[in-house]
Design a binder for these strands. Structure first.
Length: 781
DNA sequence: CGCTCCCCCATTTTT
DNA sequence: TGGGGGAGCG
């Protein structure tokens, strides 16, 4: 598809110099250091559009890796729109938004078919899944284990129970000494470093590691037996495959000519290895690299690296210059661009953010340069406990909505360190019937009935998936009891074949299952019939039919409880999700939907323009922005989290987390903390977070009298005035309580004598002129 | 053999 | 504070 160059000139004109350098980059390596709100998504999308329309790059040879599915979707949509705008001008000679709805849709769908559909945009996990659906059958691990293309993706709880079973049942270990959760974590970390069980043991020689390596090894065997992979394998296996098979690597290397990585600071070793292999074809000598018609373009911000618990390593970003780039100092380099202009937040917010992050030692020097006005103060409130904290925040939101027509519920975000903090806010939002959206916590796909339904689908798609089989063989009740299952399972284990192979064979079942045989056979027959129709029925049809045929729906209908009704509704919602997926991706296969479902995150369905207050963790908030942000629970032990305070590096990550929170705010930022808080059912006294002291005090208005009273010289142009009236004396900087407007601070004294009045700034309400002789004011101590 | 009740344990962040 | 697992009962 060829698009006229005139278009490019249009969109390039909207960019600043640095953005333009990034967008116009064609071949070779480039690191884009992109501060919060500096328009990095714009740089990414424009560059992709530019590659295609100006440099005539084939869309299918572009690989763009994002951190969330949502980011991937947004990027596709934005690129789609860019091209549609171009085409509108070219074909109809008018602006895209002036076309009627039908013409718009038609253009978008045309662009989708010709361009965006062919782009490889997605998360590491989803892109790797796509690669594995082609090539996993060519892979063999160090112990000869193999997988088939229809592999299942095990979620964290599947993985967890597998590990737990190995630790406690198979190896009979003391689960106090070998906590299954921590063992699982160790295994995950090993995989993220690219280590096999043996390599892990070699690197950490100790008794404990020997045991963990043993569990790891057995865990891999069980995954293979289920023809299943965990999240980490999705990336580890392509890397191993590329390392062991030159021609497969060669194929994908020549497929992906232009590689873009968003949130590069959050990549871990194995992801880095994947990118390195694809970009360089595995050639380690830098001098041998051929960048002709190829590029590696990464975008990131070390100050927003908040995923080290997932083995993310921002030194990978810090090393980009020496890894891929020219390694020259900042002023001379041609392989790095810094985006420092911030288009999101008010100056006061940026100043606070810059000030805070300067307390970190490990970073690339970079400041956020304001492009908007200074804005209001940052307000900081101390509450007695988490209930009062929530009340304060919600009342404030109501007040702001009442008094600012440009704000609606969707303008607000409440950000916290841990999910458990959400409850009091939720309670109060419900009490006041304010619509809200909570991201995280329990996910849709974690619900029992959804996991059951998915288990049916997984078993149909992948008969080796014994974990799924065991989940649903007697759900709903088919009087297939423990003992019958036990004996079938034992046979399968002895023969080292998947349980399904026993269960799907009538004779074997008759021999082993006793009275349950009839039920087992009937069940197997049902699953078989769906397996036969795997290619002829769509995912949605299979789901619909299997939920009926299995008796799952009838079972719930018969129960008739409110809970059962809810579950039915959820299953229907799942059905809608399959339909939606089929429509969006044009992928009708069950397989496609299952992969998508496994990799879906809660954040992905956070819809914009919903006019709902958003509640989420700081981690979930990355990449988002809101006019008004409440950063809550700023207490020692919470932010920074108690588990991080003893380690300087973790503490820096907590500070980055706080920085991420601060930089989400466009217009106004509120900070809150509680004096005491319920933790595990008992009240605990809390100290204000150390990060509060790291913010510039002259930008912050607090409801706690500061120890040293500082007035802002910039606000009082003349020498400080004092207003004396009746028996009260008022001066600039005084904290007051107004009967109607609440707490405020005197910012100015106007006039003199009888005619004088006070300018008082009320948090969130702005500045008001008040005559203290008419409106009673109280001093706020 | 399945269900319910009770006790104990756990909370950092997530693709 | 809630969910999961184990024990005991119907």
């Amino acid at each position: 598809m060829v698009i006229p160059m005139t278009v490019n000139n249009d969109f390039l004109a909207q960019l600043n110099t640095s953005q333009r350098r990034a967008v116009e980059h064609f071949c070779g390596p480039l690191l884009v250091v992109a501060g919060a709100g500096s328009g990095k998504t714009r740089a990414l999308t424009y560059r992709i559009a530019h590659l295609i329309s100006y440099h005539q790059v084939e869309p299918e040879s572009i690989l763009a890796v994002t951190f969330t599915n949502k980011a991937a979707r947004e990027m596709k949509e934005r690129i789609e729109k860019l091209f549609a705008q171009e085409m509108a001008f070219k074909k109809h000679g008018i602006r895209f938004d002036l076309l009627n709805e039908y013409e718009q849709k038609q253009l978008l769908s045309k662009v989708y078919k010709s361009t965006t559909k062919k782009l490889w945009i997605g998360t590491f996990h989803s892109l790797c899944t796509r690669i594995l659906r082609y090539d996993i059958n060519k892979y063999q691990d160090e112990r000869g284990r193999q997988w088939q293309r229809n592999f299942s993706i095990f979620d964290e709880s599947d993985a967890q129970s597998l590990v737990k079973n190995i630790v406690t049942k198979q190896l009979n270990l003391d689960d106090k000494k070998f906590d299954p959760r921590s063992v699982r974590y160790q295994i995950s970390n090993a995989k993220n470093l690219g280590l096999s069980p043996d390599q892990y043991l070699q690197k950490n020689p100790s008794y404990k590691s020997r045991v963990i390596a043993e569990v790891y090894n057995e865990y891999q065997s069980q995954l293979a037996a289920n023809n299943a992979l965990d999240f980490d394998d999705l990336i580890l296996i392509p890397v191993r495959l590329f390392q062991q098979n030159e021609s497969i690597l060669g194929y994908w290397h020549s497929q992906f000519k232009h590689i873009l990585v968003d949130e590069y600071q959050d990549t871990n070793q194995i992801q880095y290895e994947l990118i390195r292999l694809l970009a360089t074809n595995g050639e380690t000598k830098k001098s041998e690299w051929n960048w002709q018609n190829r590029s590696i373009f990464v975008v990131g911000d070390a100050d927003q690296s908040i995923y080290s618990f997932r083995m993310a390593d921002f030194t990978i970003l810090l090393n980009f210059q020496s890894d891929f780039g020219d390694g020259l100092p900042d002023d001379d380099t041609r392989t790095m661009v810094k985006l420092e202009e911030n288009y999101r937040s008010r100056e006061n917010i940026l100043e606070a953010a810059n000030h805070l992050i300067e307390n970190n030692s490990q970073r690339i020097d970079k400041i956020l340069k304001p492009t908007r006005g200074s804005g209001d103060f940052i307000y900081c409130y101390k509450a007695d406990d988490e209930q009062i904290e929530a009340q304060l925040v919600i009342e404030h939101i109501q007040k702001l909505v009442r008094e600012n027509p440009e704000l609606n519920w969707g303008s607000f975000a409440i950000l916290y360190r841990i999910n458990a903090q959400s409850r009091p806010f939720e309670d109060r939002l419900i009490m006041n019937s304010i619509p809200y959206n909570i991201v995280g916590g329990f996910k849709f796909y974690d619900r029992q009935e959804i996991k059951d339904a998915i288990a049916y689908l997984r078993l149909i798609a992948n008969p080796s998936d014994t974990v799924s089989l065991l989940r649903i063989i007697n759900t709903p009740r088919r009087s297939i009891g423990k003992t019958s299952i036990e004996s079938l399972l034992k046979a399968a284990q002895e023969l080292e074949i998947p349980l399904w192979e026993i269960i799907s064979d009538e004779t074997s079942v008759n021999t082993l299952a006793g009275r349950a045989a009839k039920s087992v056979n009937k069940f197997a027959q049902m699953i078989k019939s769906f397996q036969e129709q795997l290619d002829s029925l769509s995912g949605a049809e299979i789901l619909n039919q299997v939920m009926e045929a299995s008796g799952y729906v009838d079972d719930l209908k018969q129960k008739g409880t409110e809970e059962a009704d809810n579950r039915l509704a959820n299953i229907f919602e799942l059905y809608n999700a399959v339909l939606q997926f089929q429509e969006d991706s044009e992928d009708q296969s069950l397989q496609g939907f299952l992969s998508n479902a496994s990799l879906a995150s809660d954040l992905d369905d956070l819809k914009e323009g919903q006019e709902k207050v958003s509640l989420m963790t700081l981690h979930s908030a990355k990449g988002l922005e809101f006019p008004v942000v409440f950063l809550v629970g700023l207490e020692e032990g919470l932010l920074p989290h108690a588990r991080s305070v003893s380690d300087p590096l973790s503490l820096e990550e907590e500070r980055r987390l706080c920085y991420v929170g601060v930089t989400r705010a466009q217009e106004q930022l509120f900070l809150t903390y509680a004096r005491e808080r319920f933790v595990w059912g008992s009240k605990e006294a809390k100290m204000p977070s150390r990060f509060l002291q790291e913010l510039p005090s002259d930008l912050i208005k607090s409801n706690v009298p500061p120890k040293v009273v500082k007035s802002r010289p910039s606000l009082t142009t003349s020498s400080p005035k004092i207003l004396k009236q009746s028996n009260e004396t008022w001066s600039v900087g005084d904290q007051v309580i107004h009967q109607v407007f609440g707490e405020g601070e005197i910012t100015r004294i106007l006039g003199s004598g009888k005619k004088s009045s006070l300018a008082i700034k009320f948090p969130g309400l702005g500045q008001k002129i008040i005559d203290p002789t008419i409106a009673p004011l109280k001093r706020n101590e």
